[in-house]
C-alpha cells in the first residue's frame, strides 16, 4: 500500500494539492496543510495529480 509523505521543510501551503485531491489534502482555517497519509487505491490518479501540481514538489509517494 502506498502512503503519502509531505516534506514539511519544503511545503509552503500553496494549497494546490487540496484542489487536485480534496479527499486527501485540505487547508485548515490557519491556512495549513492537513492530509491523510493513506488513501484508497482508486484515488491514486488524483494523488499523482496533487504531486504534479505542488509548486515546491513537496509531496512524495512511498511504497
Amino acid at each position: 500500500m502506498k502512503t503519502i509523505d509531505v516534506d514539511r521543510t519544503l511545503c509552503d501551503n500553496h494549497g494546490q494539492c487540496a484542489i487536485a485531491a480534496p479527499d486527501v489534502f485540505r487547508m485548515n482555517a490557519d491556512g495549513e496543510l492537513e492530509y491523510e497519509a493513506t488513501f484508497d487505491d482508486a484515488l491514486l490518479d488524483v494523488v499523482e495529480e496533487a504531486i504534479d501540481v505542488c509548486p515546491v514538489q513537496a509531496i512524495f509517494l512511498k511504497d
Binding site: 487540496a18 484542489i19 491556512g31
Partner: peptide
C-alpha cells in the same frame, strides 16, 4: 497575503 483557504474559497 491571505491564507490558502481564502484563495481556495475565491477559486
Amino acid at each position: 497575503a491571505l491564507l490558502a483557504d481564502r484563495q481556495l474559497h475565491y477559486r
